[in-house]
Design a protein around this nucleic acid. Structure first.
Lengths: 270, 270
DNA sequence: TTTACAGAGGGTACTGAGTGCCATAATCTC
DNA sequence: GAGATTATGGCACTCAGTACCCTCTGTAAA
């Protein structure tokens, strides 16, 4: 996944003044007369600046367009709502996630959605300062929190949709798809929040990897749809067959998550 | 539909002064002149009727108060937003869930939050017709979907908060708490939706029980915090000790969720 | 009875988000 | 350059939500 294309240029730049424009112009080269920055970006920057300065609610759309030097009507041409200006890059990220999953090679479905979730992480990590500022803003503005929920929900549904396709709709396919998708999103967000709360220092990958590992431990790396015939399971030693087997012994009443962890350890993590 | 039962009894009362209309139904004794229905309920009914008749967006607050025969200002005294009138009972349900978890006896934490989730189910099941109509309405109105997300999120955070308290904040306590809470909510909602999509016929408990069972299988019924010493696990038959043990055999590469299911089956479901 | 108080409800005017419609400027195409 | 297309601005409107102030009613103290 080409990370550089994730947040390239137009979308995620927070830096208040000209960083974005600079980047654009160097990309364009000096031979052409400076093309003016795209309005969507100008608006997003003006909006974000104002939100930081005087708060989200105390900033009106008129304030934003005044600072951006454009007409009020234009704002709503680029952002369906004031909240959207705070998350200008999720639409693109969502599209990228969809594309990524569409190119899934049919291997481990849980691994695939975990990797898909990491796309979101990288979008955040591409602009630590912006991400942290937005995180703080979002935490204290109920309207933004609600908006963010709806965005997260779309990621979750994208993941669930993919898993549903892999698991099949019949039986518990849909159920497992939704629960796993919710787990992946929750784990991802846990790791991401850890990084955001720390101020965006260091590498967020580690925390998210760790969190997603827990989900994969629990939900395993199932290959393709569920096999038609269940596995031999008993209170004794039997269950021969071709291929390697693992034998797991544990006390009854052991917490399942830990049992699973141990099985994973025995099988050997990838 | 029996709109009079829409908000009956213990569900919808979250009025500024609950005592006023507390037992209005039982206070309908003949000696007292009929006390007029509580305004909150009148408003909720008028609103819901109109939403069904002409849609949520095409119904204004003025329409609602006109039908209810009250002043416009009164609407916002009882509902902070138009959306709230569609979910008049979640506040109470949330309080009930909090109360339930506070009375947790310290047993199985995952089981406790599963049971807590069932409180929500029962709220829906108490008014099948209303729940189904609201479900259909919510599905096609983006604003209501978003609103519902914020409600669901509060349930999830309530569950996660309880699990965090049980698991401890250190280590992976917070992570596990959030992932399990998300799983429980997703599973619950999956079962609930199944019932709602079916038109509210029959008993929703079965579907939700089944869905939650999956979560419990995976996350086990851990007792209290994680035990200090891990369990014996190996690629052979050893691991003796006091108490019963289970021995599980499975192919490598088996989907973990299925392995877990089989272990649960072997152990014997509660 | 009068007065004081409190709480429920109503009315009015305001802010601000979001939309529809149309005019105009910029850009593209032939 | 004519004509078509697209980007932008301006204006007016609807409607949710809020602030402020009003009336009405019931109650309790004086």
């Amino acid at each position: 996944m080409a990370l550089s294309t994730l947040c390239k240029g137009t979308q995620c730049q927070n830096p208040p003044s000209g960083a974005t424009f600079r980047r654009m112009s160097e990309a364009r080269g000096p031979e052409k007369p400076e093309k003016k920055a795209p309005m969507r970006e100008v608006l997003a920057q003006a909006a974000f600046q104002l939100f930081l300065e005087r708060g989200f609610e105390r900033t009106t759309v008129d304030d934003i367009v005044a600072r951006a030097g454009v007409g009020r009507r234009s704002f709503f041409r680029y952002f369906p709502s004031k909240e959207d200006a705070v998350f200008p890059d999720h639409e693109r990220c969502l599209a990228e996630m969809t594309e990524f999953l569409a190119a899934d090679d049919g291997g481990d479905p849980v691994g695939a959605v975990c990797d898909a979730a990491r796309i979101v992480l990288r979008m955040y990590a591409a602009n630590p300062e912006f991400s942290v500022q937005r995180y703080r803003l979002t935490r204290e503005v109920p309207g933004l929190r609600t908006y963010e929920l709806s965005v997260v929900r779309r990621y979750e549904q994208t993941l669930a949709g993919h898993l549903r396709g892999r698991f099949g709709e019949d039986g518990d396919g849909e159920l497992r798809a939704e629960v796993i998708a919710a787990s992946v999103v929750a784990a991802h967000n846990n790791g991401l929040r850890l990084w955001l709360r720390s101020g965006g220092a260091g590498d967020p990958e580690a925390a998210v990897d760790h969190a997603l590992a827990l989900v994969r431990e629990v939900w395993g790396r199932s290959v393709a749809p569920a096999p038609a015939v269940p596995f031999p399971v008993s209170h004794g030693v039997e269950g021969e067959g071709d291929g390697e087997v693992i034998v797991m012994v544990a006390r009854k009443g052991a917490p399942m998550w830990r049992v699973v962890q141990q099985i994973e350890a025995a099988v050997g993590e990838s």
